[in-house]
């Protein structure tokens, strides 16, 4: 199954500027991760729980602000962008440097999340 997830995630990992991609199930467990280089992997210290908590805090944040459903969380650093998107029972996290095409990044994160949810929706335990 990891192979199958990898083939869906390739849509995102092939985008110029993307350094790391992590896929979580709805419990926040890492079921797949990809890093462009070993250095990227070494620098990466986020746990699945960190990613899930960030998403959940923001979900609550939007609700308390009087808003509706949260679609994604976008964090912009000076040199990097992080995106967390949920679709069904799948959470996708992508970490990029500033060279990435932000518009395309958002589109592909969403597409990957939706495709994973569609294909593995019930199976990501």
């Amino acid at each position: 199954m990891v192979e199958d997830i990898a083939s869906v995630v390739r849509d995102l990992s092939s985008l110029y500027g993307v350094n790391s991609v992590v896929v979580l199930n709805s419990e926040g467990e890492k079921i797949y991760s990809w890093h462009r280089t070993e250095a990227d992997q070494r620098r990466f210290q986020l746990s699945g729980k960190d990613i899930k908590d960030t998403f959940d805090i923001n979900k609550e944040f939007i609700r308390l602000a009087g808003g509706d459903q949260l679609r994604n969380v976008i964090l912009r650093g000076r040199e990097n962008i992080a995106v967390i998107e949920q679709s069904g029972s799948v959470i996708v996290f992508a970490f990029t440097d500033m060279r990435a095409n932000l518009a395309l990044l958002l589109i592909r994160v969403r597409r990957v999340a939706e495709n994973l949810a569609k294909r593995f929706g019930g199976a990501l335990i």
Partner: peptide
């Protein structure tokens, strides 16, 4: 620039 296509959410 191209970032407009992200912020304006054309999708």
């Amino acid at each position: 620039g191209q970032e407009l296509m992200a912020y304006a959410d054309p999708l």
